[in-house]
Deep mutational scan, measured.
Amino acid sequence: MEVRTIKVFTTVDNINLHTQVVDMSMTYGQQFGPTYLDGADVTKIKPHNSHEGKTFYVLPNDDTLRVEAFEYYHTTDPSFLGRYMSALNHTKKWKYPQVNGLTSIKWADNNCYLATALLTLQQIELKFNPPALQDAYYRARAGEAANFCALILAYCNKTVGELGDVRETMSYLFQHANLDSCKRVLNVVCKTCGQQQTTLKGVEAVMYMGTLSYEQFKKGVQIPCTCGKQATKYLVQQESPFVMMSAPPAQYELKHGTFTCASEYTGNYQCGHYKHITSKETLYCIDGALLTKSSEYKGPITDVFYKENSYTTTIK
């Protein structure tokens, strides 16, 4: 009895394709271990004539594949690729409408935090270190965002349907971005203890939790000093293409032309909904596939993004 075979390709990165001759009487799992086709788990399936010449994702289970996976995804987590594939199996079914010149995501599976993050990423200057993220990001900007969303979920250790947080998501993504040249110098002034300067680099240099107003941050924000008295913390120097200011959701007025974009969060910790506000020729609110415009805006804002380049204080 002759062994019926077909020729397929296996890959971990969709760049390096490895030619395989597979036995049609055995499952993919018996031949390769966990195997995925377009995100779908085909591990328990036997090869079919229609699979001839198709590319299958496999887990990096030998040295060659491990090197290829690390170079593309910059992670050695053995569960990463499987999590990416199972997320992709959902995100490829989502709709990605162009809204006001940006790629958004039609609401499904509690994905409003991903839509808000995706919209924000198209408006701030950011370059990702893992080629996987950078490639998928370019495709997302062009309207094909399924891979990018699935990668975000995998890097953030999230599953489809789980509630997510924009600030946490951005923080994970910033860790995989090139923020080497970003720098922030802060000064804390206390009447009792004097003053202390701190220099922050990388992710810490672009994120701040405690106030939404970048102007206020430049002037000074009140913080408790270690001595128990009130101290003032203010920005001395900022070198970065953008800054992200966050605070627990509270009524906040966004003035046209003073910011790049913002995240609105309605609801409580267990259950809520994100919308995205962007400042173009007027203010726009993007909620999944829905767009509304207004000249002014007041609502429960939790993150505001500002364009920056270089700032030095005039406070002496």
Rank of each mutant, 00 (worst) to 15 (best):
V3N: 13
R4H: 14
R4G: 13
I6T: 12
I6V: 13
I6R: 11
K7S: 13
V8D: 08
F9C: 09
F9S: 12
V12E: 11
D13S: 06
I15C: 10
N16A: 10
T19K: 13
T19H: 10
Q20C: 12
V21M: 13
V21N: 13
D23V: 12
D23S: 12
D23C: 09
M24Q: 13
M24V: 11
M24L: 13
S25E: 13
S25Q: 15
S25L: 09
M26N: 13
M26P: 02
T27D: 11
Y28D: 04
Y28G: 07
Y28E: 10
G29V: 05
Q31A: 13
Q31D: 12
Q31T: 14
Q31S: 11
Q31H: 14
F32R: 10
F32Y: 11
P34E: 14
Y36N: 03
G39W: 09
A40E: 14
A40H: 13
A40Y: 12
D41Q: 08
D41V: 11
D41I: 10
V42R: 04
T43R: 12
T43E: 11
K44N: 14
K44I: 10
I45F: 14
H48G: 13
N49M: 14
N49Y: 13
S50K: 13
H51G: 02
E52D: 10
G53S: 12
K54Y: 13
T55R: 11
F56P: 09
Y57N: 08
Y57L: 08
Y57R: 06
V58T: 11
L59P: 05
L59W: 15
L59V: 09
D63P: 14
D63R: 06
T64K: 13
T64V: 11
L65P: 03
R66E: 07
V67F: 14
A69R: 09
F70V: 10
E71Q: 11
Y73S: 05
T75K: 10
T75E: 02
P78A: 12
S79P: 15
S79C: 10
S79Y: 14
S79H: 11
F80R: 04
L81E: 07
G82R: 14
R83K: 10
R83Q: 00
M85L: 14
S86Y: 06
A87H: 09
L88S: 04
L88W: 10
N89K: 13
K92I: 10
W94H: 06
Y96H: 07
V99Q: 05
G101L: 03
G101K: 03
L102H: 04
L102Y: 12
T103E: 02
T103Y: 12
I105S: 09
K106F: 12
K106Q: 15
K106V: 13
D109E: 08
N111Y: 07
N111D: 10
C112R: 01
A115I: 13
T116Y: 03
T116R: 01
A117P: 00
L119D: 02
T120P: 06
E125C: 00
E125P: 09
E125F: 03
L126P: 07
K127G: 10
K127L: 07
F128C: 07
P130F: 01
Q134Y: 01
Q134H: 12
D135S: 10
A136D: 04
Y137H: 05
Y137M: 15
Y138A: 14
E144N: 12
A145L: 05
A145S: 05
A146C: 04
A146D: 01
C149D: 01
A150I: 05
A150R: 05
L151E: 08
L151W: 06
I152D: 00
A154Y: 00
Y155C: 06
Y155F: 07
Y155N: 03
N157C: 07
N157L: 00
K158Q: 02
T159Y: 07
T159R: 13
L163C: 15
L163N: 06
L163I: 08
D165I: 06
V166K: 04
R167K: 10
E168R: 15
M170V: 06
M170G: 03
S171L: 11
L173N: 03
H176P: 07
A177V: 07
N178E: 11
N178W: 05
N178D: 13
D180V: 07
D180Y: 00
S181P: 05
S181D: 14
S181I: 07
C182H: 02
C182V: 11
R184F: 05
R184Y: 02
V185Q: 08
V185S: 05
L186G: 04
N187H: 08
V188D: 02
V189I: 10
V189M: 10
V189D: 14
V189C: 09
K191S: 15
K191P: 15
C193Q: 02
G194R: 00
G194V: 03
Q195L: 13
Q195V: 15
Q196D: 06
Q196R: 14
Q197P: 05
Q197N: 05
T198L: 13
T199N: 08
T199G: 05
T199K: 10
T199F: 03
K201A: 09
G202D: 03
V203Q: 07
V203I: 14
E204V: 07
E204L: 00
E204G: 09
V206P: 07
Y208P: 01
Y208L: 05
M209A: 15
G210E: 04
G210L: 00
T211A: 00
L212W: 01
L212I: 05
S213D: 11
Y214M: 10
E215M: 02
Q216D: 04
F217D: 04
F217E: 00
K218F: 02
K218E: 02
K218S: 03
K218N: 01
K219P: 02
V221H: 11
V221D: 02
V221A: 06
I223N: 02
P224C: 11
C225Y: 01
C227N: 01
K229L: 12
K229E: 15
Q230T: 13
Q230M: 15
A231H: 01
A231L: 02
A231S: 04
T232G: 04
T232Y: 09
T232C: 09
K233W: 06
K233G: 10
Y234R: 11
Y234K: 10
L235W: 00
Q237K: 11
Q238K: 04
P241M: 02
F242H: 06
M244S: 01
M244I: 08
S246K: 00
A247E: 05
P248T: 07
P249I: 08
P249H: 09
A250Q: 15
A250P: 01
A250V: 13
A250K: 06
Q251P: 10
Y252G: 10
E253T: 11
E253R: 07
K255G: 09
G257D: 06
T258M: 09
F259V: 04
F259G: 01
T260R: 09
T260G: 00
A262D: 02
E264C: 05
E264W: 02
E264Y: 00
Y265I: 01
G267H: 15
H273V: 04
H273L: 06
H276D: 01
I277L: 04
T278L: 12
K280E: 09
E281G: 01
L283A: 03
Y284G: 02
C285A: 01
C285M: 08
I286K: 00
I286A: 05
G288T: 06
G288R: 03
A289K: 05
L291D: 09
P300D: 11
P300M: 10
P300W: 15
I301G: 01
D303F: 02
V304C: 00
F305W: 04
Y306R: 04
Y306S: 02
K307P: 15
E308W: 07
N309K: 11
S310F: 15
S310W: 09
S310K: 06
Y311D: 06
T314C: 00
I315Q: 15
K316L: 15
